[in-house]
């Protein structure tokens, strides 16, 4: 399958509306530089991300999927992030079993004041993905 070469890794980021969004906003307003290859999608809760949403970006050629949610115990909706953790574990196991790189899906807990952590995590992720093969869309 020939497609236009993507030079930079493409990261789809699902960011929860509460802690993770606040951190992302804080990173933005504090003018911290973070990788522009991240394409954020704001969801209400990390627990509202279905497993098929975590897989679809890979099949469409994304390099990585980043999920930002509140620390366990801090979830605005009580326990959404605990459920999200199980779903990410399921998707990781599926990727591992199919010989696909499970490091390409990354779950990170980020609290509202951790703007720097958000920027650092995204940058580290982008950096790691650069050294890997570019994602390919399934035919």
């Amino acid at each position: 399958m020939k497609e236009k070469e993507e030079k930079e890794p493409v990261i789809i980021a699902f960011i929860c509306n509460w802690c993770a969004s606040a951190a992302a906003d804080l990173a933005g307003t504090s003018r911290m530089q973070y990788a522009s290859n991240i394409r954020p999608i704001r969801v209400m809760c990390s627990g509202s991300i279905d497993t098929s949403y975590m897989l679809k970006p890979f099949l469409d050629g994304a390099d990585g999927v980043f999920i930002g949610g509140c620390h366990p115990g801090d979830c605005h909706y009580i326990d959404g992030n605990y459920k999200a953790r199980r779903k990410v574990e399921e998707v990781k196991e599926i990727l591992r079993s199919l010989g696909l790189d499970d490091e390409r899906i990354r779950l990170r807990w980020i609290s509202a004041s951790e703007g720097k952590k958000f920027a650092d995590e995204v940058n580290a992720f982008a950096e790691e993905l650069k050294s890997k093969e570019r994602g390919r869309a399934m035919p």
Partner: peptide, 18 residues
């Protein structure tokens, strides 16, 4: 237990700290 739950203090739809 270290959990920040400030967002539950009011009804606003975004983080209260921010």
């Amino acid at each position: 237990d270290d959990n920040c739950e400030m967002c539950k203090a009011t009804d606003q739809p975004t983080c209260l700290k921010e």
